[in-house]
Every structure is written in structure tokens, then in C-alpha cells.
Write a protein that binds this DNA or RNA. Sequence first.
RNA 1: CGGGGCGUAGCGUAGUGGCUAGCGCGCCUGCUUUGGGAGCAGGAGAUCGGGAGUUCGAAUCUCCCCGCCCCGACCA
Length: 576
Amino acid sequence: MLRMSTLLLRTLREDPADAEVPSHRLLVRAGYVRRVAPGIYSWLPLGVRMLQRVSAVVREEMDAIGAQEVLFPALIPREPYEATGRWTEYGDNLFRLQDRRGNHYLLGPTHEELFTLMVKGEYSSYKDLPVMLYQIQTKYRDEARARAGILRGREFLMKDSYSFDLDDDGLQRSYDLHREAYVRIFTRLGMDYRIVAAVSGAMGGSASEEFLAPAPTGEDSFVSCTSCDYAANTEAVQLRAAQPADPAARPPMQVLDTPDTPTIDTLVAVLAALGHHVPAKGTLKNVVVLLRHPDGRLEPLVVGIPGDREVDLKRLEANVSPAQVLPFDDFERHPELVKGYIGPQGLDESKIRYVVDPLVVRGSAWATGANEPGRHAVNVVLGRDFEPEAAVPAAEVWAGDPCGRCGAPLVIGRGIEIGHIFQLGRKYADALGLDVLGPDAKPVRVTMGSYGIGVSRAIAAIAEQSHDERGLAWPRSVAPADVHVVGIGKGEEKPAAERIAEALAGQGLTVLLDDRPKVSPGVAFKDAELLGIPTWVVVGKSLQDGEVEVRDRRTSGSRRVPLDEVVRAVVAEVRG
RNA sequence: CGGGGCGUAGCGUAGUGGCUAGCGCGCCUGCUUUGGGAGCAGGAGAUCGGGAGUUCGAAUCUCCCCGCCCCGACCA
């Protein structure tokens, strides 16, 4: 039983000034967490109970698919991360430190390396596989901008697991097991969530899906189809593109004088005046960005997209990963890039790389820059007048764009990434030499999957989805207590509340009892609503009729129950 | 990295050169009150983010630093 008279809990009447999003505001106000430093939070007793309850659900479901729990240090020497290249690849997001002897360490952002090395160290036979390992552990990422309280912190609690298999079929089985376990976990946590296709990254190239909790405060945007069940992170969306055409069937390319047309709008107007009625979406906009490769090398990249769209930098970056995308403004050092008049034709003769968004298809004709100031070209045809190096999704995605699978309009929503499952393949096994001996006594390179759930973030995501203007309203499976008992009055009410609380605790329920002396009814009610325990029992003036009230936090419904039936009624409700 | 806003008690805030830095919440003591953030009385709690400067006098003006919050990062 949790007694509010002694519980380390102080609720705030007013919103903290630095909190913007609902989960941050309410978790602080209701006394679940306190900020220690940017992106770093302490958890008070009620918050800790929630971490434990969410962790317990995760553990049960991970154990149920045969995964084994281990625990690695958060403080890790540099060498394994050096071996996989992530010491540099992770960039500034890695917390690095040195010991007194000057040796380099990091605080683990994820633990692929150590899991791989553990399997390598302990196992050496195909008979040992498959194996799935997981841990629930504090992770560290030096976020450029920690924000939104618990949603994006620099320290957070995460379940990460890894599967080790002999072949692709085995990996697929491990992946599917995790996917099913995640479905059970998020369902049990009472969350609204979507499974969306994610970007697999440049090198892995295998399957990856994210579990997103729809919420207006989410940082990820995703599309879902209004007709079929396709859903994808915006970064990973495949749109239905136009049919390729025969490049030779187009009218010849023509270069026109188009002075003072630095933007798409001005270009469309000037072309119309010249008799070429090209809509904005028929122009080809060529955006220059700067790629920073993991080895630090910088390289300009030109991306062609339809002129009515903007470049979605996050989407582009996800599709050129592990390179980073930076703004490009060094036109002086690249005279071949004529600012405002860049065209793809002839660009391939310079050493500058050119790619297009998949919306730009073979045989399509475009109005675009002519690579000289004040001039544009029309009927510039892909496959005849220029040849991009690759198609890289980079254009922003719009609501109503056609689904890549069925062509129906897509809708766009925002969500919080609460889980990610990923077929890693052999990247880490290659880097760290993870082999087992096969039945033929020859070494077999192991293939891996990695799977994450943000435990602390899940609590914030649930708060985003489960609150109202009065406070939090937790699902039963994660609430810090099963029932909140309040006694109102100066007669028999409080002793009666105490007895009911004892009886409920005796039935195995976790009871939060408001036994604070001298709290007014208003305070007790406001706090109960703020804290968000799903069921509460009010022992008040109806006690003289031998009844108490049982209330539901979510529906605000209330019913009177005879004193001698309270325990049974509440137990039924909680277990129901 | 760029732009904007901000830093005064545990929380929310007032105070633009002049008396002992004010108020609300919370906290402590006493009395009253007990179905929707109670009332009265008395109290504790602040190096005004830090440093330097200007001034007879600085929370207030100047400079530097630190920190926080929000937005942005490409327009070809």
C-alpha cells in the first residue's frame, strides 16, 4: 500500500514554465519526474513504479519468445565501437569520456557491439544458434536538442534485443517473433500504435519497421493509405510514380532566355509569357546539398525534384545514410553550379553527383535551368538529355499523394517512435568477426537483428495519448497503483477508507491511499485526477447510507456500492 | 549552427537606477473548516544565473560568460 502521507510526492498546482508538451507538463505536475539537467530526469516513487510495470510487461513478452535477459555496462571502452566504425559514425551524439589514465570510453547509445562480442566469446558452434538476448538498460545520447521532457532525453531507459542466426530464414523467424512480441507488448500497455515501414539504411538494405504511437507531439511523420494497409514513415514512403515513357518520343530540348527567374514561380510566369505553359510540377528543381560522409569527407550532391515540392531533408538524409546532409552555400568554389539556373543536362560532365527523386521518371520532360545565368531549358528529358546516378527519395510527401502499393490517396499523421525492429544482417558480425562452426566444420558468418523499445519514452507516449484537461488517465496495465482510495470527512470516513484500503491490499491490489491529514476534499479530488489512477474509491457522505463511491478516471463515471461489496466490486473492476 | 524568448524562494510570478525585493501556491505553528485546489493569525525560506564594469547607490544600465525554452536549417 502506498500512503500519500509518507509518499515522496508533491503535486504542483501550476504548469512548470519550461514544459510545453502534455506528457512533460503532467509528469512533472503530478510528481512522477523532476528535471535535473537538460534531457536528464529523476524519477520519483510513482514514476519508478511505472518504469517497473512497463519493464515487467516487456520482460514477460521477451521471455515468452525465448529471449534471455543479460545486462551490459553503460560505460564502455572505445575499442569495440572503433572496430565497427561507430566511434566516428555516431558523431557528436556519442557521450565520450576518459579515465584518469587517458583511456577513452563512451556511454552506450545502443549495444550491438557488446552483444556481438558476448556471443562471439561464449558461442562457437552452429548448435548454439539461434539465440536472442536482451537487456533493459539506461542509454545515453548527446542529442543536439533534447526536447519535450521524457520524450527525447539524453538519458533514457530502453529495452534492446539482438538475434543471432545462421541464415536469412532464421533471421526472418527471429524478426517475426519480435514483431509479434512487440504487438503483444504495446497492446498490453494500452497504447494506440501503428506499424510502419522504415528506412533500412544504405548498407543493410533489409527489412525494418517502426512502431509509432500517433500523437500530435510526435517527432516522426508517417503516411497511411486510405484504402490498403500500407503505412510508412515519411522518410521511407514509396509513392506511385508516373509511368516511364520513351525518351525519344519527346520534342527536342530547347534553351530559352529567362532573365530574372531565380525561383520556380517566376520561371513558370516567364515560360508562360514565352508560350510554354509548364506548371510548377513540370519544372525540375535542382537542390544542392552537402554530404558529410562518415570519414568526414564533404561532397556536394545535386538532387532533382518536381518544382512544386520542397526537399524533405530528413527523408533525404535517411536515404543517403550513413552520410549526413548539410546545407550547401559554397557556390563560389563551384562555378559549374549556377545558383538559380542549375540543370541536370551536362552536369554529369562535371564531377558533381546528380540524383533524382523517384517522382522524376525515365522519359519525363522538364523545364529546368540551363546552367547559365538567365537561361532555362524546356523539354529536358530523363534518359535522353540527362542520366541521374540514382533515384533517391528526397521530395516532401503530401497528403493525397498516391499510395505506392495501390494508388489510393495517402494521409499523413504524426507519431512517437516507441519501437523499432530491424534486420541488421552481417554488418556487426563482419566488423567483429562473429562466426560459428557449421556442421561441415567450416565457419559460418552469423546474421543479426536488432530490436528496441523505449521504456521511459513509452510512459511519456502513453501520457500523450491518455490525458485530459484534469490530468493523467493511465491504462490499468501501467498505472502506478490499481486503485486510489480517498476518505472525505471528519467522522468515520477516514477510518473506513483505511479499512477498505487494507482489505483491497489484502486481495493483492496495489492501493494508493490518501491518508494525508487535513487535506480538503477539493485537493484530494484534484490530486486524484492529476495522478491518473484508473479507479478510485471515495469514502464520503454516502457512508451514512452504508455506501461508498467507485469512480472511473477515464469516463468520470461514478456508482455507489454498499460497503460490504466494495472489495469485490473493485477487485472485479481491476482484474476485469 | 542560425533566429527569437527567457533566467528573481521548492513552483508560478511582480518589480526598467533610490527605503527592509513584493505577491500567489507550497512549507512550519496555532485555532477554525471538511464533497471540488478552505479561513484567520503568526512564521521560515532569495548570494535576484555567474563574473567584471558604470554609479553615491544596480534585480534594474554596459560587457563577457553560463544555462533554459521554442522555432528554424534546402527555394535551386
